[in-house]
Design a protein around this nucleic acid. Structure first.
Lengths: 170, 170
DNA sequence: GATTTTATGTCAGTCTTGTTGACTTTCCAA
DNA sequence: TTGGAAAGTCAACAAGACTGACATAAAATC
């Protein structure tokens, strides 16, 4: 999946003249778009007294129910102290359940409670709505390119985490 | 899960069948890619004792020399107090020069010094290198789509800021 | 069985960067 | 000329990242 998506073979395709100006526009596009990308969930989170860190935790626990703390750490790329602060509040608030592992009792497996799923739903609905609108505006061709460039921009380890889940559209 | 995004009928272009799963992948792609996007500058900044906020200020002052603090505020989307702390250190360290406005003496016009330009160069070189590599990997078709989706994802006000500068590739 | 490693959690302290509130200087308009 | 608005600064606080040290329990290894 990480091999060049250029695919269609022609060597003429590699004649990509990228001026610094074009690259700068790409950089600013990432900056401005990421703000839009987080704006809707941020508003919802604020009402609950949570931050982006909580969103990320909830998102990835939803994506991979039963994931361990260590797993989550490597996906999120933060320290355990940092994650722990977030998880503690989520557990106290009854959004996340932490179950001792059966095979390995040192591990804690994380699950969203019904309340946790409800918050995840609200957050991801908002984010998906924006993503869907952007996709619709840009069209299917653009969606494919969008994903290809983003994947190529990741660090290899992140790309592994990214590719680790089912997909469906490529 | 929630509503599966099906084409709303109508025009041929809207035959975009977007499952929640596909949208979730797009969301995660943004998350992971943004980390890669900021990783290289972050390493450079750390050596200088700066953070991302400094990078953003330096970037936009470079882009629009002579911009006022207020201008910068609306682009960056933070409070003036927050920006001020960053600007103060940059001015103290001799990377940014603040000149009192001629027409309106309340305004401060911001410029990068030679040292400031040097840091900007180092930061944007690193970021452009990654962007260029991603573009090359993904191909020209993908680059166009990437930009289209990102622009569609921005809030309208950010889109204005984004579109406000010269472009070159579209 | 003893030791080491691993997984997790906690406490304390620092740093960046966001926030609000209060203030000064400057401009402009009634 | 006076009062309000705008631009910018200073101070204090909060979220959330970090490091470092330490505790506990379980698994793995010797």
């Amino acid at each position: 999946m990480s091999d060049t998506g250029a695919g269609s073979g022609g060597s003429g395709e590699s004649l990509l003249f990228l001026t610094d100006e074009q690259l700068r526009k790409g950089i600013e596009a990432m900056f401005f778009a990421y703000r839009g990308f987080t704006a809707d969930p941020d508003r919802i989170l604020q009402k609950h007294g949570y931050g982006r860190a909580h969103h990320r935790a909830v998102h990835f626990i939803h994506r991979t129910p039963g994931t361990t703390v260590n797993n989550l750490l490597s996906v999120l790329g933060v320290t355990k102290q940092s994650l722990n602060r977030v998880l503690r509040t989520l557990i106290e608030d009854g959004l996340v359940e932490s179950r001792v592992g059966q095979r390995d009792k040192r591990e804690r497996h994380l699950y969203l409670t019904l309340a946790g799923e409800a918050l995840e739903q609200a957050l991801s609905d908002a984010q998906r709505a924006r993503m869907r609108a952007a996709y619709r505006t840009a069209g299917p061709q653009a969606v494919s390119g969008f994903r290809q460039v983003l994947e190529a921009m990741m660090d290899p380890e992140m790309r592994r985490h990214f590719a680790a889940t089912r997909d469906g559209d490529q």
